[in-house]
Write a protein that binds this DNA or RNA. Structure first.
Lengths: 196, 196, 196, 196
DNA sequence: AATGAATGAGCCTTCATTCAT
DNA sequence: AATGAATGAAGGCTCATTCAT
């Protein structure tokens, strides 16, 4: 029983279905039927809305990025103090929405598989740069440039590493303790330094 | 013109081929023909030696683990001092053989895809436990148990995170600077503590 | 903004679109969407008007035949002399409207593909018979029956052959020279015979 | 029960199957399964030997051309006299092997569909040129160049036209009478001319 | 009158896997 | 030991067709 104006709903449902399918499988080679099935539509309709499978994957990756970006922006808007901004960025990375194993597994899968796809790699680089600049915008006011670079790199690695552990099926760190670990590192680091 | 006693060489060639194929593609869905081709044999022979594709993947994963294990053991054998043992474990993880982008990409791919395969997950858990106990064997003598746990977790996450960055195509951190980052963290951490 | 009384225009537009689509592709397997798109309507509307795709093809073929028939009739109406009637029939086959590469390509496509469709074959047979009887109506008064049959066959073959060449993309014979070739044949033939 | 050295047999069987499938359908859009089925193999094997469907079509067209070329060459080898050479070329075009409705229908289908495929068009042009030069090699010694051109064009058109009629399912002209028609035309034409 | 929404069926193609040699 | 031959099963994608609006 088709209704009018279904397009945005279907698109969203298909993207969500893609995320969970990829997350569960841990691989981009999920089938269109699988995805369509989860979204409750035929695979033909998925093609109708997204064209080729690759385009759906791209759109999904884009959606993930956009959502993260929105969360970060809104978090940053709330705090002006450099240290607080750092915590805000970290908090977003471990928020309920971002740190769900399902979402994370999808993230990682895209991460790893991105090497073979120029499009995906380009998208991921955007994310990496954005994270980096968000971290730097806080750190640079707390320490020297080169040191800030090193700390940003460490924090980014820490986040990625915690993501990996979270993706594994042993349900490892919960959002709170993961965030705490990063905060702990930052605090330790900052307590040993003076402002630049 | 096949010679006698070629079997071990062929097996090894096939495993190496699997690693590089998976590493390059960033996905477990490499074809048997691709692998066999790289090893210079027919895909039928690959099946002859390893049975199903999944078994070849398992054997490959096992090979990766065994190699890492051997490197770690031999490194630990050389040092008795707790702090030195920590550095040894870290050094191995960033050694020339382990920290090659190709190998890393294969690692990560297995990591992420492991969720859908009980066999693979089991293997990966072995690795995780081993790393953890290796780190703990050093840390436990330098700080309290709960604190050591947290530090081990951080170090493990840091390593994984640096692996991810290394796998990305921008060829980010080189082995030396990656290892230095972890060492830096450890040093910072230890300088603020007393022995347990 | 659809207007009243659009139906005949839409039908005609769809048929024209079918002709050019088939002509360009050189194959009957053009899609309904392609056709509908060229006609500026939705494919659903094409179905609304013509039912199944096959019916649209049939209608298109019928249109082609009807148009040719009309041109022939009007040409014959103008001349009573046997020789002139022959020329008239030939002229129509090479007229501007009939001898356009696009139209011809559609013709040939139908011709060749007609074998798998009883409906199409029936239609084409009508055309063949009509051409034959038109030629014979002139020839029979200029030579003996059996000889007229042979000449009619030759002329028909000549026309078809020239159609083929015209359909090929090298844009071979132009209408005038093609017609001249047939006329030349007829003249040669007639100059060597006496009236029956 | 696979045997060794099957490749040439399978390739040939598949090409033959393609010819008859296309001939019967009157369209290039025969399915790979249809073709493979006729050749008694799986469609996967067809792909194994020919790659994509398009390549099989190309190979088939090439086979048709090669066979015709061989027949023509062997016929020409037998006669030195210009007039006899003309007859030889014509005879080959209406030989038992070439003038089978099945083969002809395949020819025509390729002819018409060739427009959308550069590869096919290229192949067909080779055939057209070859026929033309074969005809000219005889005609040029019997009449003036420009006249020979016109006659060659007529003969080629005549042949194509007779091919079309033969392809239609009413089993029109048999090989002998078709060849006779062309010969008749040539004779008539030559009897009205002097040698150049 | 006209269309967007939706799908089932089918096709090309790939791939792991088997088997006879 | 090693491979060519062969296939079944599945996946991506297209398309004619239907239906509610």
């Amino acid at each position: 029983m088709p209704k009018l104006g279904m397009e945005p709903l279907r698109r969203r449902a298909l993207i969500d279905a893609t995320i969970s399918a990829i997350g569960e499988r841990g691989s981009l080679d999920v089938t269109m039927s699988e995805i369509a099935g989860r979204a409750g539509v035929s695979s033909a309709l998925a093609h109708h809305y997204f064209g080729a499978k690759h385009d759906l994957l791209l759109a999904t990756m884009g959606h993930l990025l956009a959502e993260l970006g929105a969360e970060v922006r809104s978090a940053l808007r709330a705090s002006a103090d450099p240290r607080a901004r750092l915590s805000a960025v970290i908090a977003v990375n471990f928020s309920e929405t971002q740190f769900r194993p399902e979402t994370i597994a999808a993230w990682l899968t895209f991460y790893v598989a991105a090497q073979q796809s120029d499009d995906l790699r380009r998208l991921l680089r955007i994310y990496a740069r954005r994270l980096h600049s968000n971290l730097m915008s806080g750190l640079a006011r707390l320490m020297s440039r080169p040191e800030a670079e090193r700390v940003a790199e460490s924090v980014a690695a820490l986040i990625d590493g915690l993501y990996i552990r979270r993706a594994l099926k042993d349900g490892a760190p919960n959002p709170a303790s993961a965030a705490a670990l990063v905060e702990e590192y930052l605090t330790l680091r900052l307590s040993n330094r003076k402002a630049p």
